[in-house]
């Protein structure tokens, strides 16, 4: 049986200073495992976008990364407002971010499209009022 590694992080919803920290730690781990730079990069971009979305749109959540011989799977889960129209949300430039969030440099509506571009597989489950579950898979 081959091994797998699991990393788990809480994503605080109220502290934007910590936004990106979980991704940064996962990335460090991927480099310690000696994974290919291209794989690390793909994971980094997709994971970072998912992490930020959970923090700014959903008041925080959790991030779990599982790495085995075949793939990296990053699951970002939140109990926020959910996404009403996923197809719309996936479009480039679509964003519901507030003026305040935009001032901080987020809200270009590029996060989800970026995630799709970099992940090998992207699954998003979302229910209004219940939350969102994003699963990113990158093959090694």
């Amino acid at each position: 049986m081959s091994k797998s590694i699991q990393l788990h992080f809480e994503l605080p919803g109220n502290d934007l200073n910590l936004a990106g920290e979980a991704s940064s730690k996962v990335k460090k781990t991927l480099n310690q495992l000696g994974l290919k730079p291209a794989v690390v990069k793909k994971t980094a971009v997709a994971m970072y976008e998912a992490e930020i979305n959970a923090i700014i749109h959903a008041g925080g959540g959790t991030l779990t990364a599982t790495i085995d011989q075949e793939s990296i799977v990053v699951v970002v889960r939140d109990q926020g407002p959910g996404i009403a129209d996923l197809e719309l949300a996936m479009q480039e430039g679509y964003s519901t971010a507030s003026e305040k969030i935009r001032k901080m440099g987020f809200g270009a509506g590029m996060g989800l499209p970026n995630m799709k571009r970099h992940a090998d597989l992207l699954e998003i489950e979302s229910a209004v009022g219940q939350g969102t579950l994003v699963t990113i898979t990158v093959f090694l």
């Binding site: 590694i5 460090k28 310690q32 495992l33 000696g34 994974l35």
Partner: peptide, 20 residues
Amino acid sequence: EHRPVMKLDDDLDKAMKKLE
């Protein structure tokens, strides 16, 4: 070239074990 000095082991399985 990449200088993979942060890598724990050349073998992924072993690297995972070391990480654990």
